[in-house]
Design a protein around this nucleic acid. Structure first.
Length: 336
DNA sequence: CTATTTTGACCAGAC
DNA sequence: AGTCTGGTCAAAATA
């Protein structure tokens, strides 16, 4: 099997290209990325998604010690005999012979990133390729790859490709996934909630989290309930951790793993309509509604809907209730 | 008392 | 310049 059997690459337009390796800008998020049609077509083939529904900003940042990798060499990456640095947002790799696909994990271990083509997809020339810095120069800033892969929930990552990669107003790059409620606890990092906001065109609040391990860590996470698909949550990640993950997995401070059937602590999914129409006596308290965030997963359809509707009824008079029903998002209709 | 969450205010980018 | 929107801050509330 030769190198061309694997489509693996990164679109590179700037980000320190052609600069000496000693001048690599460590923070990718602060760089501007511009893509043309060729870039987007290339990404379509790589990600296999509809470009119209995919806001490509920065598809990956992938760093490895060698510029080219064959299948066997890639296998060496998965089972490295020597420390290799990988900095990657989730990235799908397709074997063109059998269409087998894998996703690189969303591991974010290091400060340094540099975009590299490992092999050029057919019809798309790798341009502005640069060799990476040496492994030695990078690896000391990264956690060990084997350690990363041990922590990588491959089943989760495999069935959850990113559905969107976007750039926020402050130029941060956000990679969004669709997850089931029970998958929300599949996160190796410790997060602390720092905000919540209702976003335009969605009745559900967006919950903002930052890494709770290090004050200096810039990693961020956003969680909101999917409007289009009631059974899903939209989970977005931004920034790289500059430290090792917490040792204890799935039982992190501030991240309630006591039951896989409960929402992690701090995630609020109460629709806007309820908040806006809540009675004055409860308008200042989210506590009243947070109870519903510990509902059993089985209730995400009938039971939860029932309780939410009942909550609505308890907090509005009949006149207001008519207006609320118009605002109740899909999936929260009263059941009969 | 400490840690975490809540929530209105504030700020900056986009339009 | 003014408004809208999303992201963050930080004091207060809560666990």
């Amino acid at each position: 099997m030769d190198d061309n059997n694997w489509d693996l690459g990164a679109v590179v337009r700037n980000c320190g290209i052609n600069r000496p390796s000693s001048d690599i800008t460590p923070n990718l998020g602060s760089e501007s990325l511009n893509f043309d049609d060729d870039d987007l077509n290339f990404l379509d083939r790589i990600f296999g998604v509809d470009n119209n529904n995919f806001d490509y900003i920065a598809p990956i940042d992938f760093s490895i010690s060698r510029q080219e990798k064959s299948y066997d060499q890639f296998d060496d990456i998965i089972n490295p005999t020597t420390p290799v640095s990988i900095i990657a947002n989730p990235f799908k790799i397709t074997n063109q012979n059998d269409n087998q696909q894998i996703y690189l994990p969303p591991i974010q271990p290091a400060q340094v990133s540099q975009q590299v083509f490992l092999s050029s997809p057919s019809g798309v020339e790798a341009r502005e390729c640069v060799p990476t810095t040496t492994t030695t120069a990078v690896s000391h800033e990264c956690i060990n790859l084997q350690q990363q892969l041990l922590m990588w929930d491959s089943t989760l990552t495999m069935r959850n490709p990113p559905i969107q990669i976007r750039k926020s107003k402050n130029q941060s790059i956000w990679t969004t996934y669709e997850l089931f409620q029970e998958e929300l606890t599949d996160d190796i990092w410790s997060w602390r909630k720092y905000g919540q906001k209702f976003i335009k065109d969605s009745p559900f609040p967006r919950n903002y989290f930052k890494c709770n391990t290090s004050e200096l860590c810039q990693a961020r996470k956003q969680i909101e309930k999917s409007l289009k698909k009631d059974c899903f949550f939209l989970v977005a990640y931004s920034g790289m951790h500059n430290h090792d993950p917490p040792i204890i997995r799935r039982s992190l401070s501030g991240w309630n793993h006591s039951s896989k059937y409960k929402l992690p602590k701090g995630i609020n999914i109460i629709p806007k309509a309820l908040k806006l129409n809540a009675s004055p006596s409860s308008s200042k308290s989210g506590k009243r509604y947070r109870a519903s965030s510990t509902l059993e997963i089985e209730s995400t359809s009938r039971k939860k809907n029932k309780i939410i509707i009942e909550t609505m009824k308890n907090n509005v008079d009949e006149k207001e209730e008519e207006n609320i029903n118009e605002d109740v998002p899909k999936g929260f209709e009263e059941l009969n």
